[in-house]
Structure formats: structure tokens, C-alpha cells
Amino acid sequence: MDALVLQLLNGLDKGGAYALIALGLTLIFGTLGVVNFAHGALFMLGAFCAVAMKQLLTLSKLVKDESITFFDAFKEEPYLKIWFGDTGAIIIDYAVPISILLAIPVMLLIGLALERGLIRFFYKRTHAEQILVTFGMAIVLQEIVKAMFGANPVPMPPPEIFAGSADIGSFLGLGNSVVYPWWRLVYLGFAGIVIAGVFSFLQFTTFGMVVRAGMQDRETVGLLGIDIERRFTIVFGLAAVVSGLAGVMYTPIVPPDYHMGMDFLVLSFVVVVVGGMGSLTGAVAAGFLLGILQSFASMNEITSILPGIDQIIIFLVAVVILLVRPRGLMGRKGVMES
């Protein structure tokens, strides 16, 4: 039972990341009709926004180390600490959440630039060509990050109060054997908030209404005198922000490296396809579903019966679903059917 609860949490956590990336992918696909293979790279860029912010906050200068008295020792002291004392130290401690402030404008800009500069030329071209050009773009982004931040994973500790583990077991009355890292709970909550935010944005604002209408029938919306292209460009920026934020908050869970995007891209594409191309709820549901399945499959009891199942479960599920339900779990009719 304890193990089950733990794996469920693990799955929800992973599923949160999958769902966020898949949500962005589906949004782009549903509005612009573009298959974006660079979406994993956007996730990775988000993560490196956090790294950049951390580096910015901990810009240091050498000061004399007072604690060593018998020779002149120097240590690096961040400017923030020198200027603001303890407040500065707290700011540095909260580097990851603060990076969200950096990530939103940066990712929005990158998203808009990508759409205006490259992807808009590909609306009329085949899906194969869209895949190819965004795949190339993903390599470029990945290599730029590698040149800037190096090839090794960068450890990003969460803020200190979230560093420990939560005793969920006694909270749920299961005894104290179920402990779970605080930050992962934070991530789960964060994913929920972002998903809810995107959905309510699309559901309750005029902008969202226009976008939804455009997803249904962009021609008619255009005929009503609405510049739907422009809205869709903004949607692309929004999708970039969503996956960027997913990347920022994921950094304390897995130290970011330059190819993390590719690993997530493959999985989140599978998620999108399982959920149904162009279906937002499908993407979110499939994200959590596959995340949970994956973590259950990695339990010892299961891997001892079916060794290796944890490695392939997602792909296996995808293959089965695609063959049984060709449009995915909640795919709309007429999407991606030539």
C-alpha cells in the first residue's frame, strides 16, 4: 500500500511534466497545425533560464575569508550577499522560483521569434517538412545551450524549506513509512495550477474564445474580421511559456543538461498521440495516465515478472492505443486525417 501511494505520487509528478509539455504541443498543433519537434528544446530552454538566473544571482567577487586567520584566504562571496546581507542569501536560496520571472518573458520572446522567424513559413508545407525543420531547430537550440552552459548536468537545489521530505504517510494515516520530497509536491501543485490557468484562459477570456473558435474553423473566424494569425502567434508564445515553466520547476528534480529536451520530446509526443492529436484534455489526461503507468511499471514486483517493462511501457501503450483507437483517447474527428 505504501509503495503504491509512493508510485502514484511519482507517476503524478512525471505525468505533470508530460502533461505540461504535451499541452503546449497540442495547443500549437490544434491552432497552427504545425508538428513542433522543437518543443522539447523549449522545455530545456526553460530549465536553463533557471540556470542562468542562478548564475546571475550568484555573481560573486573574491573577498577575504575572515574565518581563516593565520594566512590570507579568499572566498567567493555573491554580490547579493554583500549588498543585502541575509535578504540576499534568501533571494539566492529561492533562485528556482524567482527564475519564473525571467522565464516568462524570455520564453515568450523565444516563442514569438521562432514562430515569426521560421515556423510561419511552414504552415502550407507537409508535416514531414515541419518535422524536419523543427527537428533541425531543436538541434541548433540544444547545441547553443551546450556551448553556453557546458555539457554536464547543472545541479539546482530547491529552496531550503522544500529541500526535505514530507511525511505524507502519517497525514493519510498510513504510518510514517511514506515520505515524499517536498519539492515534488510543489511541482505537482504547480503543474495543476498552470494547467488550470491555461484551460481557464481558453475558456473564460474573449481571447481564448477566439482561439477556440479558430481551432474549430479558422476560415470563418478570419471572415468575421478577426486577425486569427496574430492570435495564433501569441498562442505559440504561450505554449513556449508553458513548457518553459515546466522546465524551470523541473530543475530541482532532475539536474538539467542540454539534451534533456530530446528525452522529453519523444515521450511527450507519444503522450499527445495517445491523448489524441488536437485534444487539450486528452493531452493532460494521457500525460498523467502514462506517467502513473510508467512509475507503476517500475515497481520491483512488476519488473521481476516482466523485466524491462518499465523502459518500454509508454511506447507499448502508445502502440496498442494507436492500433485500437486510431484517433487516440480523445482525438477529434478530422484532425490529422488527410
Binding site: 508535416h127 519523444v266 509526443f269 498521440v273 524491462g308 523502459q311 502502440v319 488527410s338
Partner: peptide, 29 residues
């Protein structure tokens, strides 16, 4: 299996199979 679908679905299916083989080659096999 993969050719039952076309377009992007085909790409994803082949990708899924390749990743599966890769993961298996690293772990169980």
C-alpha cells in the same frame, strides 16, 4: 504494425519502436 497508420502517426510509431529497442538494448537485453 506501424504501417497501419500514416503521416505523423507513422513517424511516432517508428520512433516509439526504435526507442523501445534502444531502451531494451541498454537494460534487459
Amino acid at each position: 504494425i506501424s504501417l497501419r497508420r500514416s503521416g505523423i502517426y507513422f513517424s511516432i510509431l517508428t520512433l516509439a519502436f526504435a526507442q523501445m529497442s534502444y531502451n531494451l538494448a541498454y537494460s534487459v537485453l
